[in-house]
Simulated assay, not measured.
Amino acid sequence: MTTVRIWDLPTRLFHWALAACIVGLVVTAKIGGEAMNWHFRLAYAVFTLLLFRLLWGLVGGHWSRFASFFPTPGRLARYLGGRGTAADSAGHSPLGALSVFAMLLVLALQIASGLFADDEIAFSGPLTALVSGEWVSRATTWHKGWGQYLVIGLVLLHVVAVFAYLARRRNLITPMVTGDKVVPGAAALPSAADSAGHRLLALLLLTLSAGVVYAVVQFGAVPSLG
């Protein structure tokens, strides 16, 4: 049993920042009124985090890269058949990976629909003027209905899974705080890159992601030439 750096600092900060933003989004949506101003700010923050995670999934630490935990049929079959390797459970397990990708996809759809949604009272997404009223209606229906319920459902499923693993003496919380995990057969497992240079790269990618979000939001505010 050896300690290995599994989660680099950018991944850990992403995880907890995303969790906090999702809670804030649900709360502000339920409160409504002036709290919707914060709902928009938090939504833009989640948009930024999702873009960052997409990039970090390509160049981040080993266990944060999509290639290291993508749930291929072979990995799923091996894991479900009780033949999983140390690498299959060091980071995201194949089942956990399914949950991760489902969460990222649902959040992406929720953010995208929010950009075009309109509550027909006082608040509307920044891109509503770019599409027809029919598409605004569809986006609003999804955003306030299935999209919201799927996000809440996946979050609850995630929490239940974490506690289920705790009951089996597998702590998933501590590694996401410290970055390190005690695993068997660690000699064959690579440690995640987590140097100062690696973290600087993450900061640059986060800044780039924020710039893209700002550009998208501002694009919706540009008066139509027609």
Rank of each mutant, 00 (worst) to 15 (best):
A192V: 06
A186T: 13
R170F: 09
K181M: 00
A161S: 10
R170W: 09
A187V: 06
N171C: 03
L166N: 09
A186N: 14
R170L: 10
V160K: 01
D180F: 15
V183N: 02
V159H: 03
V182T: 15
A186D: 12
G179S: 13
G185N: 14
A167G: 06
A161L: 05
P175N: 12
S191C: 11
D180R: 15
A161H: 04
L166Y: 08
F163Y: 09
I173A: 04
D194I: 02
D180A: 15
V159I: 15
V182P: 02
T178A: 08
L166P: 02
A164Q: 10
I173G: 03
A187S: 14
A192M: 07
A192H: 06
D180K: 15
A193V: 06
T174M: 12
A186Y: 13
T174A: 15
V160P: 00
D180M: 15
A167M: 08
A187M: 09
D194T: 05
A167I: 09
S191K: 13
F163S: 03
A167T: 08
A187D: 15
V183W: 01
M176Y: 09
D194P: 04
P175F: 07
V159A: 11
A167D: 03
G185Q: 12
T174S: 13
D194K: 00
L166D: 13
T174G: 10
A187I: 07
V160T: 06
G185S: 13
A193K: 07
R168V: 04
G185M: 10
R168E: 08
A192C: 07
A164G: 11
V160E: 03
L189R: 08
V159D: 00
T178Q: 06
V183E: 05
R170C: 07
V160S: 01
A161I: 02
G179L: 10
G185R: 14
P190V: 09
V159R: 03
T178E: 07
G185T: 12
P190S: 12
V177Y: 06
V159W: 02
L172V: 03
G179H: 12
R168A: 08
R168T: 09
A193G: 04
N171D: 14
A188V: 02
L172Y: 06
P190I: 10
A193F: 00
K181D: 01
A187H: 14
V182C: 11
T174W: 13
M176T: 10
I173K: 00
F163P: 00
A187G: 11
V177G: 05
L172A: 09
T178N: 10
P184E: 14
S191H: 14
K181A: 04
A193E: 12
A187L: 10
A186K: 14
L172S: 03
K181F: 00
T174E: 13
R169E: 09
V183H: 05
V183Y: 03
R170A: 11
N171P: 00
V182S: 14
A161D: 04
V162S: 01
